[in-house]
Design a protein around this nucleic acid. Structure first.
Lengths: 337, 337
DNA sequence: GCTTCCAATGGGAGCGCTCCCAGGTGCCCC
DNA sequence: GGGGCACCTGGGAGCGCTCCCATTGGAAGC
């Protein structure tokens, strides 16, 4: 009755032996490849069941030269950048798409030197079948490494500089323009922008969108007021803004976190939102709904962003040549503007 | 000048040949193992540099029977559970600890059937050197799978039922008790609890802490008002609470998201916080600081949680036998209570 | 009935690394 | 001066799988 606990995992050879076939046939049966008779196929299946056989992914990887994993690399100087719920949603999307392709997700936070070194090694050693790269800053060494890697690379968000061959991005400039135009259409004239880091393309593009909208409306854009996409930086930027331009009546913040910070500063300064100052954010994360007042914000399809990035990578891994993708944004009007 | 782009990665054999040594010596030099003369060691290093050699992790994995990766599995029926910023912080901590041990992080969202199946396969095929398991619900099949796996498994948060051999957890009951006692000490008498999912141990323990504190103060605990750790569920629970107990003057919410929802409902119902109703949350995520009013909440060391989980796993992988860990919580007093 | 063809089969050579072991060298010590 | 005894060294056997290829046998075609 008591089954001897097998110390070692059964191997394909043992399955083959038990099924009375050769290893080749067993392998073909397992990968349901052609050229296996019905009888033997069934014999193999039976043996697999009896032995509780599971193929060894490492051995398979070595033989096929495919790891069965895709890496998602998040750059940035500070690991806490990853605490932004934005990434969690990207991961949910990417994970779903990779699951369909039966690829595992390796997550690499390339904040520390050590982390970057490990990513470089991953890239050079083909430790994954492909890589998704996010949150690159200007002159990020990861960009160069990726270019040199003999491996499919998809960028999540274009990096600063020339656009890479494969990327998924969001219409940052368009979204920012729409947000700013909304403020202007509500009669705001002294509209300022709290920007994200200007060493990222997203930060730059969103400022460009703001500026274009202002110029288009015949208004003077204010110079960029740089934050780092965090709530405190938004609060600080808003405070500085109030000091320099007490008459500001509209604010476009390059993400919801900073918008929330701006809201806090405005509340503390006794300014009513939106009566005195209207505020628009970007991202449409949970914080936008929770904020008081709820934030009017530029919605971006974050989960789709992750999903499309992964799908593009899968296509590349399968030898196809997908085209870059720019996802649309859409203004969600709540009460802050 | 123009270097021929080598189509194939150089192998250890080529390094050895170039360095004029055997493969064994090259291997030892690479892993800086003993029994290699200084001269040959340097020759190998030179050859590595000239050839741009990077060891093939898959081949190494096959030979050593170690994958060099640890998996973080997040269970739950809905992938969006992962959108909770809680997990992002856990990942930051875990990632840092794994980086020290030179292990890669595989992230598995085991929400769909397909996802669970893949985790099972991972477990059975030893596709990773160890696994961290989080967010298990009652009777979660993952628990059984993990128990059967011939692989180190660390639980992040104890599952419902008997405690596993290795886990990292937070003092949920203690934190909840402290939170509730705080409300009582501020003179609140009609204190309710908005619970998390009661099919998770965290949800249960936090309710137990609330109940114990109430009983300890000679007050009647209200029956659990169950949410699912999301903001809307907190808002809904609060609304139901107001309907059933209009005289409620204190609320302990089992996490910050639900507390934020409660805040919203209270605001819409015209109740002042904390004057009419005091609210305490749990987690101390960013949302607690952003909320209006800022939330008094039970701080838990989330990043440390992830870090310790990973460290425990690394210890197990290295053949040690670490002891389970329960991390302390601490009440952070802001203005909501 | 004999060639032709193709599905089915199993042998064997890798994939690129680790690690055990047998053999070889120099050096110290009695 | 010879027998240990370090330390080096390289050969070779795996790790568990895939896949090419030569071989077989039976069905189909003439």
């Amino acid at each position: 009755m008591a089954e001897d606990a097998p110390r070692r995992q059964p191997t394909l050879d043992e399955v083959a032996e038990r099924a009375g076939v050769s290893r080749s046939v067993a392998s073909r049966a397992l990968n349901n490849a052609p050229h296996v008779s019905r009888a033997k196929r069934e014999a193999v299946e039976r043996a697999v069941r009896q032995l509780g056989y599971v193929p060894n992914p490492t051995a398979r990887a070595l033989a096929t030269r495919q790891t069965g994993a895709a890496a998602l690399v998040v750059s940035g100087e500070d690991p806490s950048i990853f605490a932004d719920p934005f990434f969690a949603q990207v991961i949910v999307g990417a994970s779903a798409a990779l699951e369909e392709a039966d690829l595992h997700l390796m997550l690499c936070l390339a904040a520390s030197d050590r982390g970057r070194k490990r990513v470089e090694e991953l890239l050079r050693s083909k430790g994954a079948d492909g890589v998704m790269l996010m949150a690159l800053r200007e002159d990020d060494p990861l960009g160069r490494m990726a270019a040199e890697a003999q491996m499919p690379v998809v960028f999540g968000g274009r990096p600063v500089g020339p656009a890479p061959r494969w990327y998924v991005d969001v219409d940052n400039a368009g979204g920012a323009r729409e947000a700013t135009e909304h403020l202007v259409s509500r009669g705001r004239r002294r509209v300022a922008a709290i920007c994200g880091r200007l060493d990222t393309e997203a930060g730059r593009a969103r400022y460009r969108g703001y500026r274009d909208a202002m110029l288009g409306a015949g208004l003077d854009p204010l110079p960029p007021r740089e934050g780092d996409f965090t709530e405190p930086s938004g609060a600080a930027a808003m405070a500085a803004l109030l000091a320099d331009h007490p008459d500001v009546d509209g604010v476009f913040a390059a993400n919801d976190n900073m918008a929330a910070g701006a809201l806090r500063t405005l509340r503390e300064a006794g300014r009513r939102v939106p009566a005195d100052v209207a505020v628009v954010g970007f991202d449409d994360l949970t914080v936008a709904q929770i904020a008081d007042p709820p934030l009017t914000t530029v919605h971006q399809p974050i989960e789709a962003f992750g999903r499309e990035m992964a799908r593009m990578l899968v296509a590349l891994v399968n030898g196809q040549d997908p085209t870059p993708l720019i996802l649309p944004t859409r203004l969600v009007i709540r009460s802050s503007a």
